[in-house]
Design a protein around this nucleic acid. Structure first.
Lengths: 221, 221
DNA sequence: TTTTTTCTGTAACGACCACTAGAAAAATCT
DNA sequence: AGATTTTTCTAGTGGTCGTTACAGAAAAAA
């Protein structure tokens, strides 16, 4: 058919890094990364189960056999989507934890950036990791995202413990509870974003959330 | 078949309140309220879409035609389930708002009771209103629960405004942001409960969440 | 008893689900 | 050119979805 202009055969990804020689057989008519990003947006908006393979082939603009040849089955496509999402849209938490000098500053930055990321115009609102496997009949899919969420909370807890050990936070700080509080806050912000809260609303919400932290030296509210 | 003991024909609800005369035709072989509660638990655990009519007829132990005759279609059964859930399991927020003397006390009680309700043994964890319509292909179902969530946040906000007007809370309190913060906290606690957090963990989380509130006179933390 | 009314079990309906067999098409290799 | 390899399109597969037609069963009404 090829009815949509000259969108076809534009990509034809290289077979290997650095090699300019083409692959052997008929080349792919679509760009794999572009199609993957379309799948990512669909899964992000509607979740794993509510996004049918038929939906996917429509938004990716490819036939079902092409999808299965390029990405495996629906499950492995979703797994790849989750990896790409984590690297492209979900890495702000890891960056904040790694780059900010204190746990408090890291969480403050995380919540501020979450307010922006979860309400970015032109993209699904909220966090794919929080929502995309909710009410999923496949327990493995649900578990895979649950593990990512608990891993995030565990990373918060480690960062808080570091600050307690360094004397930046009080010695009697309940690191586990504070980490879970932070995780619940982010997940609650994601839910609020899905329910229509604006970036500014989430930012003022985040500011309130930060007031539970002891202020290390400075007096900022 | 009637293979499960004498469980059948036990209920046969009265046709009208006070009237002892039986209904006209063949009496129902199951207790409507019992079956409705089973449907409630199924929808609570797996959500609207992931709970198939086949799942429902199995857990309610009735045939599909009986389900449709007694409850209408799947959608209207879910609507009734949501109403019953709100009255039986979700009313603790309204009670706290109505019975506690201040917004702060009401929210403190709400979060404390949420920690218990969302982790009650033998029941699905978390809140049906938060989770059961996530990733739902039917936008009306998703919207109906979204409206309940936003109505709850609006009720928080009204209660907070009352305290601001009464001088119980500072005049510069951002009632909307504090209400959304509370809603996000409850929703985050529900998500944490789904992810396996215990009642005690949610309680210490709630205690942290309450520390953002100005303390009206008393010194409790 | 016969009629009327309502419920119950069987057994399907069309629509969609994730997935794939098979043939034609488009490239490289010989 | 012809052979080989890979992708594409068409057209399905069996299974499950929500829902219902139909006939028999169980009660009250006549």
């Amino acid at each position: 058919m090829m009815s949509d202009g000259d969108a076809g055969r534009s990509g034809a990804a290289r077979p290997g890094a650095g090699s300019a020689r083409r692959a052997r057989g008929r080349p792919r008519s679509f760009d794999r990364e572009t199609a993957l990003e379309k799948a990512l947006l669909a899964f992000w908006e509607h979740g794993y189960e509510a996004t049918s393979v038929s939906d996917l082939t429509r938004v990716m603009d490819i036939g079902a056999p092409s999808l299965y040849a390029a990405f495996g089955d629906k499950r492995s496509l979703f797994d790849e989507v989750v990896r790409v999402y984590g690297a492209r849209y979900g890495s702000f938490t890891d960056r904040a934890l790694a780059e900010e000098p204190t746990a408090r500053a890291a969480v403050a930055r995380m919540l501020r950036e979450a307010a922006a990321v979860y309400t970015e115009p032109g993209r699904p609102h909220g966090c794919l990791v929080v929502h995309a496997a909710a009410n999923c009949s496949n327990p493995e899919v649900e578990q895979s995202l649950r593990e990512r969420r608990t891993a995030n909370v565990a990373a918060f807890e480690r960062r808080i413990r570091d600050d307690v050990a360094a004397g930046v936070l009080p010695a009697d700080t309940d690191a586990g509870a504070l980490a879970r509080y932070t995780g619940a806050m982010i997940q609650g912000m994601s839910q609020q974003a899905r329910d229509g809260a604006s970036r500014e609303e989430l930012e003022s919400l985040a500011e309130i959330a930060m007031s539970v932290w002891p202020h290390a030296g400075t007096a900022t509210g």
